[in-house]
Design a protein around this nucleic acid. Structure first.
Length: 594
RNA sequence: GCACUCUUAGCUCAGCUGGAUAGAGCAUCGGUUUGCGGUACCGAAGGCCACAGGUUCGAAUCCUGUAGAGUGUACCA
């Protein structure tokens, strides 16, 4: 994706492509839970009960309605009153002539709420023709920096970069869709002693190096081999590190060339993965080099530094280990660079929130980093700094994901394998041309890899299993893509224009419609907690409800009257659009036929 | 040693501010077919939520301890 395409991508996430005529008053129908909360709060006040904020939750069972409020018991305790009595008073003040049709006290003092079916019908009608599916943007947009992927230029991207790249990209897409201004930052590792060796070797291989750099992994191994075997080469490598840091033109040229090629490899992976990172988003480690001395000075001015064993450290309260910002030999560390990056992001980019999508092993580093950044004033007190951590990728037997001989798995190889597995999985009912099969397998295979990762809680380790991720059964991308294709099939068969009103009459229709309405609440929750698996869980539930609806509710059969048919077609269209939008946020494509 | 994270059905995982009888999928067993795409749907069975205490009207969820697993622990990033 080119920079201009990327820009268009983000803008499209916010823009409403085909404005609904209902947009003017759509806020009346938006943010389901907030509206219910506010109705409940009013009722509490009218019943003379003090409450700060109330939060309803989804009903735990269908018998308990659509939503339930569990907070009465706690309030009753504060007031030393009987919870059922209070609940009854509150229920008496809940209007049941609009959004809510029924409110009941249950058990020790739960309040169960049923939404009015007509209200649901009208609300879902609002989604028709709205490219945003009535998902509102946030009231006050933030500037959000999402720091993700961040590969090291010395080596080829491997599976260790997969999770950061796709979780980060999803969050960036999500924040943008919800109206925040997103600044993607690819903090690539392009500096350090190994680059002396690499450029010295590049020089030997011929400066252009385009041939020898085609396999970075091999290039690194070869260079390391030379380094270990030849003392003269090793000396030259060390000399080149110094020269590079000193701004030597020849070495810088070699280095530029090397980084350019290496970044090119990354872009190949991003393109195949459908990750929206461009060169515009690259802000390399080396770009902070000139600021590092100033960072140390600034920390010193604040009185935060202690010299310990010759190194400049910040000692943090309750922390055994210091935060090192300058080595005893005067060199700087990644801690220093990270501080410079925070300062840049807050002070120059104007970030309100910075999300670091980095694996869980670095939790300690980020805790220290954030603490020091605040103490030094690089981040404001209200700057939201968060480590969006994630667990490891494990193989089927629960061990860290490696190649058969224990090496790291190159990301590009993994993705190619995904496409091969996908071809096997989609033994199709119709014969595809080779070209078509390739296209479908790519969308299915890459989608499966991404979905498998995004569908589990990011904090836990997850088992990488081809068979499971490429199954049509269970919570997989294929199940969703199949549901989508099925919907498109109906629409193709119908051929006419879908234009009727949504009038919900049956339970499966109603359940599906309500789920469609909950898309917005779910997205805001996923964004607030930076948890992509809320999206996949929702989409799977949505698709499941659609399948049930589909089984029980004929659409195109001869004996279906036109009003019912239009109603059901509309629900199908909306379901398809929601699946497409949801998967789109995850960077996963859909297919018209499968 | 210390710190952090984790432990939910045979397996892979959900479980929002503490709430009602802890939910899915896979696998197992049993159903649905003159099917708008059956790669679907319905049902059954499967649980001491690691263990022991505590707080609470109420705990998978909060606190303490124990066991097991993983990760991190000053001059790499």
């Amino acid at each position: 994706m080119s920079p201009s395409q990327r820009k268009a991508h983000d803008e499209n996430l916010i823009k409403t492509n085909s404005p609904s005529i209902f947009n003017s008053n759509k806020s009346d129908f938006m943010k389901l839970k907030q509206q219910i909360n506010s109705i409940l709060l009013d009722a509490l006040q009218q019943a003379g009960i003090e409450a700060q904020a109330v939060q309803v939750s989804d009903a735990s069972k269908p018998e308990f309605g659509d939503y339930q409020y569990n907070g009465i018991m706690a309030l009753a305790k504060q007031q030393k009153r009987n919870p059922r009595e209070i609940a009854a008073e509150v229920v008496a003040h809940i209007p049941t002539d609009g959004m809510i049709a029924r409110a009941e006290v249950a058990g020790p003092g739960f309040i169960n709420l049923w939404l009015d079916t007509n209200w649901v019908s009208q609300s879902v009608q609002m989604l028709v023709g709205d490219a945003r599916l009535s998902v509102d943007t946030v009231d006050t947009p933030s500037k959000v920096v999402v720091d993700y992927s961040s590969p090291n230029m010395a080596k080829q991207m491997h599976v260790g970069h997969l999770r950061s790249s796709i979780i980060g990209d999803t969050l960036a897409n999500l924040f943008a869709f919800l109206g925040d201004e997103v600044i993607r930052q690819n903090h690539i590792g392009d500096w350090g002693t190994q680059f002396g060796m690499l450029i010295a070797y590049l020089e030997e291989m011929g400066e252009d190096g385009s041939g020898s750099l085609s396999d970075l992994e091999q290039f690194y191994k070869d260079a390391k081999g030379r380094f270990d075997a030849d003392a003269a080469f090793a000396d030259k490598s060390r000399e080149y590190v110094v020269k590079l840091q000193g701004g030597d033109v020849h070495c810088l040229h070699l280095w530029d060339n090397f980084i350019d090629k290496s970044l090119g490899h990354c872009e190949e992976v991003y393109s195949k993965l459908g990750v929206n990172l461009t060169r515009e988003d690259v802000r390399a480690e080396s770009s902070y080099n000139d600021e590092l001395a100033g960072i140390v000075t600034a920390l010193d001015d604040k009185g935060l530094l202690t010299l310990s064993d010759g190194a400049q450290c910040v000692f943090l309260e309750g922390d055994e280990n210091p935060f090192l910002v300058q080595k005893s030999d005067g060199g700087y560390l990644y801690a220093t660079t990270d501080l410079a990056a925070i300062r840049y992001r807050v002070q120059t980019l104007g970030a309100d929130r910075i999300s670091y999508v980095v694996d869980a092993r670095q939790a300690g580093h980020f805790r220290q980093l954030f603490s020091v950044a605040r103490q030094a004033g690089f981040a404001k007190p209200d700057t939201r700094l968060e480590h969006v951590s994630f667990g490891m990728m494990l193989d089927k037997s629960g061990r860290p994901f490696k190649t058969r001989d224990g090496g790291t798995v190159k990301l590009i190889d993994l993705l190619e394998e995904a496409v091969i597995h996908a071809k096997e999985a989609i033994t199709s009912r119709e014969a595809y041309s080779d070209e078509e099969l390739e296209r479908i397998a790519e969308i299915v295979g890459i989608g499966a890899v991404k979905y498998a990762d995004l569908s589990i809680h990011r904090d836990s380790n997850y088992i990488f299993d081809w068979d499971k991720m490429l199954s049509f059964e269970g919570n997989t991308s294929l199940y969703l893509q199949y549901a989508y294709a099925r919907i498109q099939s109906i629409l193709r068969r119908y051929e006419g224009e879908v234009s009727g009103a949504i009038i919900l009459t049956t339970d499966p229709e109603r359940a599906l419609a309500l789920k469609l309405l909950q898309f917005e609440d779910m997205l805001h929750r996923a964004a607030a907690e930076s948890l992509p698996h809320y999206i996949t869980t929702y989409l799977y539930e949505l698709a499941t409800l659609f399948m049930k609806f589909y089984e029980t509710s004929p659409i195109l059969k001869d004996d279906v009257d036109e009003v019912t048919r239009q109603n059901r077609l509309q629900l199908s269209v909306l379901t398809g659009e929601t699946i497409q939008r949801g998967l789109g946020l995850l960077g996963i494509g859909v297919l018209e036929r499968l």
